[in-house]
Simulated scan of single mutants.
Amino acid sequence: MRRYCLLLPFLLLSYLGLGQAVPYGNNPAAGHYATVRGVKLYYETYGKGAPLLLIHGNGGTSKDFSQNIPYFAKKYRVVALDSRAHGKSTDAGDSLSFEMMADDCAALLTQLHLDSAYVLGWSDGGITALILAMRHPSKVKRLAATGANLWPDSTALMPELWQQMQRGYREGKNQTFTDPKRKNDWKVFLLDWKEPHVPLTALAKIKTPSFIIAGDRDVIRPEHTVAIYQNLPYAWLWIVPNSGHGTLQEHADEFNRKTDAFFQARALPMKAK
């Protein structure tokens, strides 16, 4: 035990970037747990400054932001979360919803004594970011959402993805999952199969300045992304050229700069009606 304690400072220094890549998503130098709304949430913190909450997509973890955290940690206090039922965050419940995850985010910010934060969400994280701004508007300074959709069908999702999800549902709907991991994976899958259900008219409630992003080859239909932008009172739109769903990874440098510029912009005019 004493030997481990003596080695720990050197391990932490190596994780902080002295000769080794930082193990985002599994970093003992930055990782923390918080019991929030009956769920044990894992999150990592980096940098100092205005708080920035990062929310990953379906089946992902905070590791998905490994190309973004180093940039933002230079000027923000980054909080990279593993959503409930994902990564190191536990969730013994049988159900999962975007509203639950948005409420988790609000509660985590409160527990960290943060009145509000900038929010960057990818895919399901983008959906969560929008719902967080609807349910807890005072918690969100500004939000950036890339690859988000408002409902789960072929009018929002590209045909290939929708067909893949239909096959997945047919294969799993009659199975009984006894293995905890497979049971959890099925619950996570059902989240995107059943949800979200946010009407475009509900976006008018979001007064938070919003940056709506998608790749020009995203799994979200481009017209759906544009409709989200058009129904938000204060918003920027960026369709990333030559990009799939992983805009923040495929074009990380440009993504980081443009998102930061949005967060720091002095004013965002209301779009003309």
Rank of each mutant, 00 (worst) to 15 (best):
D103W: 02
C5P: 00
V78W: 15
W151H: 14
A214I: 04
Q67C: 05
I213R: 04
L96V: 05
N68Y: 12
K205V: 03
M100W: 03
L52E: 12
L143E: 14
P137M: 08
A235Y: 14
P51D: 12
Y76S: 10
K205R: 13
C105R: 02
P152Y: 01
L200V: 04
P269E: 09
D185G: 01
A107T: 05
G126Y: 01
L12E: 10
F189I: 02
V119R: 06
E250D: 15
A267M: 09
P233E: 07
L6K: 12
R142H: 09
A80D: 07
P209G: 13
K48P: 02
H86K: 09
R135D: 10
E44N: 10
K187L: 06
P269I: 01
G25I: 07
L120R: 02
K63W: 05
R266K: 14
T61D: 12
L157S: 04
A107Q: 05
R217L: 09
S210H: 07
V36N: 11
F10H: 14
G60Q: 15
L161T: 09
S95K: 14
S14H: 03
P241S: 08
R3M: 01
I228H: 11
N256R: 04
A80P: 09
M1S: 11
L248D: 12
I228Q: 13
F211S: 11
I55W: 03
I131L: 03
N231S: 08
R135F: 01
G172T: 05
N231R: 09
D94A: 15
Y229H: 11
M134Q: 06
F98V: 03
A272V: 10
T146Q: 04
L109Q: 03
G168D: 04
E223Y: 14
H86C: 14
D64L: 08
L237I: 07
G215Q: 01
A267W: 15
A107H: 05
E171W: 00
S116R: 07
L132R: 00
Q164G: 06
T146F: 05
R84K: 12
N26L: 13
W151P: 00
K88A: 14
I212A: 14
G168I: 00
R2A: 07
K75V: 06
K207A: 15
F211D: 10
R142S: 01
E99M: 02
L6N: 11
L18W: 13
A267V: 06
G38D: 14
K48D: 08
R142F: 04
P9G: 05
L143P: 03
I55V: 13
L248Q: 15
W236H: 08
A235D: 08
M270R: 08
K141M: 06
A34G: 04
A272S: 13
D153K: 06
Y229P: 00
H136Y: 01
W186R: 09
T146A: 06
L114T: 02
T45S: 13
G125V: 01
F65T: 10
H136K: 00
I131Y: 01
A73D: 04
A129S: 14
F98K: 02
P137D: 01
T35R: 07
Y46L: 01
E250R: 05
